[in-house]
Structures are given as structure tokens and as C-alpha cells.
Write a protein that binds this DNA or RNA. Structure first.
Length: 492
RNA sequence: GCCGCGUUCGUCUAGGGGUUUAGGACGCCGCCCUUUCACGGCGGUAACACGGGUUCAAAUCCCGUACGCGGUACCA
């Protein structure tokens, strides 16, 4: 039991859950589920200055929206809680003391300004950002340079301090990344990372390691931006005498132009970055999950439509890509269309109603459903139904290109004639409306296209849409006749 | 600068020594279906970063270069 898989998604509540964060959560979830393991949510709220009140709830809601069910977490409980780091500060303090006692860490009194000054002073073209490390720490104010009495005196006086990891130079830290294979770092390139900040809160590195151990996490699956920090974490596990978990570093999601998918450049390309924006824009959660899963992973065969449970089945962390993937909104929308097509008319109507009613006022549910059924195949988003407002109200404008191409000198006359004949058609079915139109064409010696295209323009204002006669039936006899005559009058 | 990780069609990717005229998907283009537009079907366009090496044989292995990304905080 103790060796069963446990993974965690550990976001920082600093804003709306990012699309990249959701993908990290997804991969963790898939890994947990396919190993019959446990998926933990842990809130890493150790940065007081960046804390955003609503963020945690947004994380929970976003994950719920796509169906990533958490086994343990702040709103779920579990027996290794609490699941918010701000509620675990005593634990970190204890562990810091342990490291201090064992000589793996030391107290430092330097202020931010003093550290900046040191970096400024030691800066050379070859070394533009000197580290606080074995090479420089002996020039600073810390327990390694001050004598014990002085350190105690400062502590007693309540002077601010941080606790730093004492990184021994000249060593090589190695670990096997599940995705990338063996990775090695020289400790000479690792600085004496701050573990405990002067406000008493731990840094990410300390809290993360302590919690992953305390929560018995077996696999750390996270974004590639953490790869350079991993040697610090491995060093910490060593210092505590704990076996490190397995690590897997996921490739990053990048902007379509390369580079980071930041809020700013994503907005410019109309790519939502927050999960809440995907919800607001009417994306189907299944489509987002499917798209995200395939952005950096593939099953090895040519399938590409996967439900969440199919992904659990098919996923394998070894098949995860090694390089960053550019976000392709077109492909996401293609997925969305795929899933919208699987929706029932009732479901489409449900999703589209708010947008439709905002545009045309209250609509009859049965009518809306009939429209949904008819337009089904043509939708990328369920709410695209609102674009076909002509099912609910007379068109107010006519497509200009369409008029130019299809509206001829005889159109008005034909529209009036068709309207007149429809008056006499009591059944008004797909069959009858078509038969009437064909008869009209024969009698007037006009080609079918000469009539049907202007009719579409007159009744819908557009040149595109579902079958003409199905559309007419849904629009209704009275409205059809009214629209035909009005168009004839207005367009001449 | 330094450290790390990468590099196959425009994009997501398959392929990991001979099975490859390098496969699929999105996008784009064309045709079919349809007197509309989609959907669907069929077809087309388009890629192994570069240079060395290893080998009978390299997109595949090794080295270097270039380029990209990440990191280089008392942020995560």
C-alpha cells in the first residue's frame, strides 16, 4: 500500500488557473488513474505578496469543469493534510531546524540590498549575476562568517534573517527524469538557495520537498521550468536523508510565435490563457482535455479522439514529448466541433439559449431544439447557433456579396410569385415547399437556382445555411411569406 | 554570460540504424456529395537545422555549431 502511486498538482494561488497548469494537472491525473494511484491537490500559498483570494476556488472549479477529480485536497480532506502550505508552517520550521542542526543549512542576515550590492560588486562580463554560493558566502553576513555569539545576539535582538541551504561545491547531482532520462548538474552552479524567508514562510523549494515527502508523493510531474531547480530538491532530500521521488518534467506550452504563452501575447492572438476564459467562450471541456492531452503526448498510433477515461487507458508518461509545443487554436476549435457534433440537440439548445435569447429575446424551447437539430453539423461552438438569428426573427440586412451574385432583375417578381403560391399551400412541408418552387420555375421558365438562392437571401439574409426547405419549414409559413414580400419590396 | 533542456511538413506529431517514394492530424488548395454553406469522402501542398564522425547503410548513434526554450529571486 505504501508503495502505491501518489502524485500531486501543486499550483500557486496567484491568479486564474492557466491553461498550462491545467495540462500539468491533467497529466498528473492520467498518471494517477492509470496506476490506480492517488491524485492530490496541494495549494502552494507561501508567497503572501502574490496571494489571490479567489484563485483557489478557480483552481478547484476549473479542474472540476474538465472532470479531473481530486482524491485529496483542501476541499476534499485526506489524512496527510492540511493541503494548504500556509497551514503547515510549523512543519517547515521544524525541518529547517533539523537542517540547521545537521549543518546542511545556515542562518544569513544579509538584506536584499546587501545581496544586490555584492552581486554588483562581483559582476564581470563573464559572470553577470554572481551567486550566493560557496564562492561568495564567506563575504556575507551569516552563521558561517559570524561567530556563534554574534549570531545569537542578532537572533535575540530580533534581527531579520533567512535560512539558506549550504550547497557543497564540486559535486555532481544526478537524477533520472522519467521523460528526459539522466540529467546532471554540477553543484558549483547551484546557489545557496533560501529555504526560509525573513517573513517566516518557506520558499517553494523547501515547502515542496517537505510536503512531497510528508504526503508520500512518489512521482513529481511538473512543468519544465522546474528542471533547473531539481538539483536543489535532490540536495534537500539528501540532506533530510529521504529517498527522492521520481521526477518527470513536462515540455512547456508555447505561443504560436514561439516563446512563452504569456497573458499579453496570447490575448493578441485571441488565445485564452485562463481556464475560466475557455469556459466563458463556450469550449467543450472534453475538447480542451483532448487537445491538451495531445499537445505534448501521443498514443503511438493514429487515434486522436479520446475521452478522459480513454486517455487514462492510453496515456504513458514515457511517450511524452521532450520539446515545447506551440498552441494551435485552429486545432482546438476542430476538436470542439468534433465534440459539439456528438452533443444532442437538447444539449446544444441548452448551451446556446443564453446567447440566442440575448440576441433575439425569449425563444420557444421546442423551436430552439429543432433549430439545434437542423444546424448541428454546422457548429464549431454550440453558441454559434445564435448566429442563425433568422430562425427567430426576420432578417434586418442581406448579405451584400450574396445579393450581388444572386439577386437578379426578376428576383423580386419570383419572390412575390413564390409567396403567392405558398399562401395556397396549407401543408407547408419540406416536400410541398420544394414542389411549389419547382412548379413555379417550370411555369416561369426560370432555373431552380434562379429562385432558391434569392429565396434563401430573402428569408435568412445569408447565402449559407441548412437545407432550404427544412429551413423554411422551421421559419414557418407566415414568416416565410412575409419575408419574401418584404425582400421583394426592399430589394426591388 | 553561465547552467540545463530541446530541434521531423506552417502547427501538433509518428518513426529511434536497412520495413520510408519519411506516416497521421490541424490549416491551406482541389475534386466528389449538394443547385447554398457546412459535415462527410477522396486527392494535393508541405519537413528530417547545419557540419563532421561511426557504419556496408544514419531522420534514427556520437561530437561540434547554430537556433529555440527554460533557469540564473527572501516568485512559484
Amino acid at each position: 500500500m505504501s508503495d502505491s502511486v501518489r502524485v500531486r498538482f501543486a499550483p500557486s494561488p496567484t491568479g486564474w488557473l492557466h491553461i498550462g497548469g491545467l495540462r500539468t494537472a491533467l497529466y498528473n491525473y492520467l498518471f494517477a488513474r492509470q496506476h490506480g494511484g492517488t491524485f492530490v491537490l496541494r495549494i502552494e500559498d507561501t508567497d503572501q505578496s502574490r496571494y489571490v483570494e479567489e484563485a483557489e476556488q478557480d483552481i478547484v472549479e476549473s479542474m472540476r469543469w474538465v472532470g479531473l477529480e481530486v482524491d485529496e485536497g483542501p476541499d476534499k480532506g485526506g489524512n496527510v493534510g492540511p493541503y494548504r502550505q500556509s497551514q503547515r508552517t510549523d512543519l517547515y520550521r521544524e525541518h529547517v531546524d533539523q537542517l540547521l542542526a545537521s549543518g546542511h543549512a545556515y542562518v544569513a542576515f544579509d538584506t536584499a540590498e546587501e545581496i544586490d550590492a555584492m552581486r554588483e560588486r562581483l559582476k564581470t562580463p563573464d559572470n553577470p549575476s554572481p551567486k550566493y554560493d560557496a564562492a561568495t558566502r564567506m563575504q556575507m553576513m551569516n552563521a558561517l562568517t559570524l561567530d556563534a555569539d554574534e549570531v545569537q545576539r542578532r537572533l535575540d535582538a530580533g534581527e531579520e534573517y533567512v535560512v539558506r541551504l549550504k550547497v557543497e561545491p564540486g559535486q555532481t547531482v544526478r537524477f533520472d527524469d522519467l521523460i528526459r532520462g539522466p540529467v546532471a548538474f554540477e553543484t558549483d552552479t547551484v546557489d545557496d538557495q533560501v529555504l526560509l524567508k525573513s517573513d517566516g514562510f518557506p520558499t517553494y523549494h523547501l515547502a515542496n520537498v517537505v510536503d512531497d515527502h510528508a504526503m508520500q508523493i512518489t512521482h513529481v510531474i511538473r512543468g519544465e521550468e522546474w528542471l533547473p531547480s531539481t538539483p536543489k530538491h535532490v540536495l534537500l532530500y539528501d540532506a533530510f536523508g529521504w529517498p527522492p521521488p521520481a521526477f518527470a518534467h513536462l515540455p512547456l506550452i508555447m505561443s504560436p510565435t514561439g516563446g512563452k504563452l504569456s497573458k499579453r501575447n496570447a490575448d493578441k492572438m485571441r488565445i485564452p490563457v485562463s481556464v475560466k476564459d475557455y469556459i466563458a467562450q463556450g469550449y467543450e471541456p472534453e475538447a480542451l482535455v483532448n487537445f491538451l492531452a495531445l499537445l505534448g503526448w501521443n498514443p503511438g498510433d493514429e487515434r486522436e479522439l479520446f475521452t478522459l477515461s480513454e486517455l487514462v487507458e492510453a496515456y504513458s508518461i514515457e511517450r511524452t514529448a521532450h520539446s515545447g509545443a506551440q498552441f494551435d487554436i485552429d486545432k482546438l476549435q476542430w476538436f470542439n466541433g468534433q465534440y459539439v457534433r456528438e452533443l444532442s440537440p437538447t444539449e446544444i439548445a441548452e448551451r446556446a439559449r443564453p446567447g440566442v435569447e440575448e440576441r433575439v429575446g425569449p425563444v420557444d424551447p421546442a423551436h430552439l431544439e429543432a433549430v439545434a437539430a437542423l444546424m448541428h453539423e454546422r457548429l464549431t461552438f454550440a453558441h454559434n447557433l445564435a448566429d442563425a438569428a433568422y430562425f427567430f426573427q426576420d432578417p434586418t440586412t442581406y448579405d451584400e456579396q450574396g445579393l450581388k451574385k444572386r439577386w437578379k432583375d426578376d428576383s423580386a417578381g419570383l419572390m412575390r410569385a413564390y409567396a403567392d403560391r405558398l399562401e395556397a399551400d396549407d401543408t407547408f412541408t419540406e416536400e410541398s415547399t420544394e414542389a411549389v418552387m419547382r412548379q413555379l420555375g417550370e411555369d416561369e421558365g426560370a432555373g431552380f437556382g434562379r429562385i432558391i438562392h434569392p429565396v434563401r437571401l430573402a428569408t435568412t439574409g445569408t447565402t449559407a445555411g441548412a437545407g432550404m426547405f427544412e429551413t423554411l419549414v422551421l421559419i414557418g409559413r407566415e414568416a416565410t411569406i412575409r419575408r419574401l414580400r418584404r425582400a421583394a419590396d426592399e430589394l426591388g
